[in-house]
Amino acid sequence: MDTILWIIAAIFVIAGVVTIVRGGLIYGIVLIVVGLLIGPGGVSVFS
Rank of each mutant, 00 (worst) to 15 (best):
L31E: 01
I11P: 04
D2S: 12
G23K: 11
I8Q: 00
A15M: 12
A10D: 04
G23V: 13
V34H: 05
V43E: 06
G35W: 02
G39L: 06
G23Y: 07
Y27V: 09
L36A: 10
W6M: 12
G35K: 00
D2I: 12
V18H: 09
F46I: 08
V13L: 04
R22W: 10
V13F: 00
I8D: 05
L31P: 00
L25N: 12
G23D: 01
V21P: 01
F46C: 03
S47N: 13
L5C: 09
V18P: 02
I4C: 08
S47Q: 14
L36K: 04
I38Y: 02
G28T: 05
G28D: 01
V43K: 14
I26T: 14
V43H: 14
G35H: 02
A9E: 03
G28V: 00
T3D: 12
G16V: 00
Y27T: 11
V45I: 15
L36Q: 05
D2M: 09
A15C: 14
I7L: 10
G41P: 06
G24R: 10
V45N: 11
W6P: 04
M1E: 08
F46S: 04
A10M: 09
T19K: 09
Y27M: 06
F46P: 02
V18W: 12
G41Q: 05
Y27C: 02
L37S: 12
I7M: 11
I14L: 14
M1P: 09
I26K: 15
S44D: 07
I7D: 07
L5D: 03
T3R: 10
I38C: 03
G28I: 00
V30K: 03
I29Q: 09
L37M: 14
I20T: 08
L37Y: 11
I32L: 00
R22K: 15
A15H: 11
G39H: 12
G35M: 01
T19I: 06
D2V: 10
A10Q: 09
F46L: 07
V17G: 05
I4G: 06
Y27E: 04
V30I: 15
V30C: 12
V43R: 15
S47D: 13
F46R: 08
V34M: 08
I20Q: 01
S44C: 11
T3H: 10
I4M: 08
I11T: 12
I7A: 13
G28W: 01
I14G: 05
M1F: 10
G23C: 03
V30Q: 02
T19M: 14
I26C: 07
V33G: 12
I4P: 00
I7Q: 07
S44M: 04
I26D: 11
I7W: 04
I26L: 15
I4R: 10
G35A: 02
T19G: 05
T19A: 14
V43M: 15
V33D: 03
